[in-house]
Design a protein around this nucleic acid. Sequence first.
DNA 1: GCAATTCACTTAAACGTATTCGTAAATAAA
DNA 2: TTTATTTACGAATACGTTTAAGTGAATTGC
Lengths: 335, 335
Amino acid sequence: MTENVTVKTLARELNISIATVSKALNDSHEISLDTKQKVLALAKKLKYERNPAASNLRSQKTKTIAVIVPEIANSFFSLAINGIEEIARKRDYHVLIYQTHENSDTETAFTESLVCGRVDGILISVSSSTNNSLHFKSLVKKIPVVFFDRAIDDIDAIKVTTDDYESAYNATLHLIENGCKNIAYLSALSKLDTGKKRIQGYLDALKNKGLGFNEGLMVTHDADKDKTYDRIKNLLTSQKPDAIISSVEEMVIPAYHACKALGMRIPDDVKILSFSNLSTAALLNPSLTTITQPAFEIGQEAAGFLFKLLDKKYFTTDEIPVLKSVLIKRDSTAG
Amino acid sequence: MTENVTVKTLARELNISIATVSKALNDSHEISLDTKQKVLALAKKLKYERNPAASNLRSQKTKTIAVIVPEIANSFFSLAINGIEEIARKRDYHVLIYQTHENSDTETAFTESLVCGRVDGILISVSSSTNNSLHFKSLVKKIPVVFFDRAIDDIDAIKVTTDDYESAYNATLHLIENGCKNIAYLSALSKLDTGKKRIQGYLDALKNKGLGFNEGLMVTHDADKDKTYDRIKNLLTSQKPDAIISSVEEMVIPAYHACKALGMRIPDDVKILSFSNLSTAALLNPSLTTITQPAFEIGQEAAGFLFKLLDKKYFTTDEIPVLKSVLIKRDSTAG
DNA sequence: GCAATTCACTTAAACGTATTCGTAAATAAA
DNA sequence: TTTATTTACGAATACGTTTAAGTGAATTGC
């Protein structure tokens, strides 16, 4: 461990004050070009690295943002994080990632550990088990926050979302057009706007096309994977649906497995489609029809708005876009 | 913005010194139980949060580790990160995530930005384009580093890896046993030990079983996805292999697509298997035989060793396990 | 030609915590 | 009783940076 090179070292070496050094490094207008170049040159030579802790402490800026997501091992979120990272990189920001694993308490603990100046801003997609918005309300008052995809309903904050209602509605229409009359729905996120809108799109499409609905057609997600699987299996045997819409990627996998186990053929016996960003959707057996959200773009947009907040650039809420998902028709819903 | 509550606030309120408060908060032995309780109680009441920047600056500890991976949207890495996170959480550490997108320059830039005390340690799986180990050598001298899965060959550092040679060897045997005689190999990571060992396992199996090999059977990965696809397609038409081993997940998807495009049936015309952690492997058309690495465990182990380094717990290199991958036989290699 | 301004730099004071070194009282050892 | 040790706390400083305020010299304005 050789002695650490700090602004002090540079100042001593160049016979100038540390203030001048600091300002030169920050490209301040009150430093002459000549001095700046000298400082920069020596800094490079001595491999000076600014101490982030000291800088953060003094400036109250961390050049770091936090991303809180339910799960990283999920195509949607990992793509969204890619989008976020791309924007953060351009601004030379660091990205802290936290996974809630859909646990609301974990989520609360994370946000509380972040308010004390560890990060400059937060991007969050809330956990499905979150139903108490109280602590989020206090959070957004303390630190810039942007919600993406999954937001808290009754909170006044920036939310970057997709057209959940329309895409669910259109997907349902697609099934109806292909002759389905008994369409089941695998429900998740029902506590969140995201989930509610998807359900509503489905229900409205059924209604507008004069199709019936009964509670039995709706299966809700369970944290326990086996339970979810059993419920889906039970749905298939008891309701004999001719189609299934899955509101999340995590439920369509067990749905495929259940069909396989029960010897039901997709799409002949039952058609399936799902909200999903799976890269292998086209290679599944059969290839899966998906409602694919623009995950990468959502991340980019959300990060973009967070930086606008950090820059204190004012904008109106109607500048916040609702991104469009796209229905990709494949074999699993073929007529 | 109400005034920030700091140790000073607590000290003033309790009529004790800030030193005592700080020590009480850190559960120092030189503070009486009585005082500790008073401090803790007030801290809770006033919602005191330790300022991380100040703490880092003074203690030279950040309670943060960095994870550098090629890509987050990859089942292996996202699972590994899950493992890392689990261990970090237990220790109350924060996790910074950086993606190199397989770019060596980006990788270098990241590591350089991390040495100046932003994190206490680094977990890294190096990018496939990395061939210069020089800067890694200087890195490991400055800060605790643990490599996982993809390590630099000629560097003396802690590496948590899997049995790449054996698993490639066994996978090749599996194909040979199922009657394949002209086995192609989709090569990636060939600059790294990880990739070299996989290739060697494949070559040795061929040799030991008296099967021939020619350069044409080996297709290398290209950053350009279209190029990779074209190469695979070209391989299939020119070499007419009866089997393909893919050394990475990213190449097996285009391989499936190429077979589809050329009307080749898997596994009848060509059998395929791949190193992969895809959660949908069993649902592909046909289901994919995989060499599945224990990604989550690798993350756990790597993080565990990083914390041992941070704790300055000494251990011998033979304590570092080589984890075992498992060959999961599915339809894509069915005899 | 003199006041007003700009320029380029310095001084000094933070930011909030952790820690070293004291110290006075209480306790234990002799 | 006297001395040595322990206990519980405080004063002061350092961590490395940023920045408000100040300063003397050079430049500008009228």
